Amino acid sequence: MTHRDLSHPVETGMPAYPGDPPVSVEPHATVESDGYRVSAVEFGTHAGTHVDAPSHTEPDGKTIDEFPAESFVFDAALVDLRGLDPRSPVRPADLPDPDAEMLVLRTAWADRWGEPSYFDHPYLSAAAADYCAERGYHVGIDAASVDPSPTGNAGADETEGVPAHHALLGADRFIVENLTNLSGLPDRFELRAYPIRVADGDGSPVRAVAVVE
């Protein structure tokens, strides 16, 4: 059994979704001055590799702390979507229908982490999100969002709002975003994505780990 970290490190100035709080990791106490080390960390609940709770978009959705820890262990199927153009929609025909709990979408957009083009990623069409919700799939993706992220390159024909979030979170399906290091994973693996137990939380950063037999 091997473990692979699928998380981006949390660090000052890391990419944040447009409009979200910036991330800061700064010294609060140092060994030299205080005899011990403590860091002050500031970030939003959707910073870095994170999981969305239903309350992220659904007024009556459950919060992250309402779910037991075992809710965040998934039998995952890897879906290879490399080769998609920037800001292109994933269609239902692009998705398989495996006997799994989660579809992990590999777009290769994690390779653009830290670049402006990272936010011009492919996204789930509303129909594809409905496809996943109807089949009971949670969704993970190596991009900033399952919906289009706002940038100056947005097209007039793109979906407005966050329909993929509504479809999935409205069905109590989790969304794990900003995954990385998916290259070389097998078609099936166990994904563990334990969140911080944020009281009344709409999401949380996670240490996402693939466990492979």
Rank of each mutant, 00 (worst) to 15 (best):
residue 167 A to G: 02
residue 30 T to A: 06
residue 106 R to H: 14
residue 28 H to R: 14
residue 170 G to K: 05
residue 76 A to E: 04
residue 112 R to V: 01
residue 32 E to D: 15
residue 148 P to L: 12
residue 123 Y to N: 05
residue 6 L to M: 01
residue 52 D to A: 02
residue 187 D to M: 03
residue 150 P to T: 14
residue 35 G to C: 12
residue 191 L to P: 03
residue 188 R to K: 10
residue 140 G to V: 08
residue 125 S to E: 02
residue 121 H to T: 08
residue 62 K to H: 13
residue 155 G to A: 11
residue 134 E to S: 14
residue 140 G to F: 05
residue 105 L to V: 06
residue 118 Y to L: 07
residue 72 F to W: 05
residue 77 A to L: 00
residue 104 V to D: 00
residue 94 D to K: 02
residue 56 H to R: 15
residue 142 D to F: 07
residue 8 H to N: 10
residue 58 E to K: 05
residue 175 I to E: 05
residue 169 L to I: 13
residue 22 P to C: 08
residue 20 D to C: 13
residue 84 L to S: 08
residue 63 T to G: 00
residue 111 D to E: 15
residue 66 E to V: 05
residue 119 F to N: 07
residue 9 P to I: 11
residue 161 G to Y: 04
residue 45 T to Q: 10
residue 189 F to M: 07
residue 151 T to M: 04
residue 158 E to K: 15
residue 41 V to K: 02
residue 69 A to R: 07
residue 55 S to F: 02
residue 4 R to H: 11
residue 22 P to S: 12
residue 23 V to W: 02
residue 131 Y to V: 03
residue 45 T to A: 11
residue 201 G to E: 10
residue 70 E to L: 00
residue 181 N to D: 14
residue 180 T to W: 01
residue 17 Y to P: 03
residue 117 S to W: 14
residue 19 G to I: 14
residue 42 E to S: 11
residue 42 E to M: 10
residue 201 G to R: 12
residue 1 M to K: 08
residue 137 Y to H: 02
residue 199 A to L: 09
residue 32 E to Q: 13
residue 52 D to T: 01
residue 193 A to T: 14
residue 178 N to S: 08
residue 157 D to V: 03
residue 96 P to I: 13
residue 181 N to F: 06
residue 33 S to H: 09
residue 170 G to A: 04
residue 203 G to C: 06
residue 199 A to Q: 13
residue 120 D to L: 00
residue 186 P to C: 02
residue 193 A to W: 06
residue 16 A to P: 00
residue 66 E to S: 09
residue 195 P to K: 10
residue 104 V to K: 07
residue 172 D to S: 15
residue 143 A to Y: 08
residue 16 A to Y: 11
residue 80 D to G: 11
residue 102 M to S: 02
residue 205 P to M: 11
residue 177 E to H: 06
residue 56 H to M: 13
residue 5 D to C: 12
residue 16 A to G: 05
residue 47 A to W: 01
residue 31 V to T: 12
residue 30 T to D: 03
residue 59 P to Y: 10
residue 67 F to D: 00
residue 12 T to V: 05
residue 55 S to E: 00
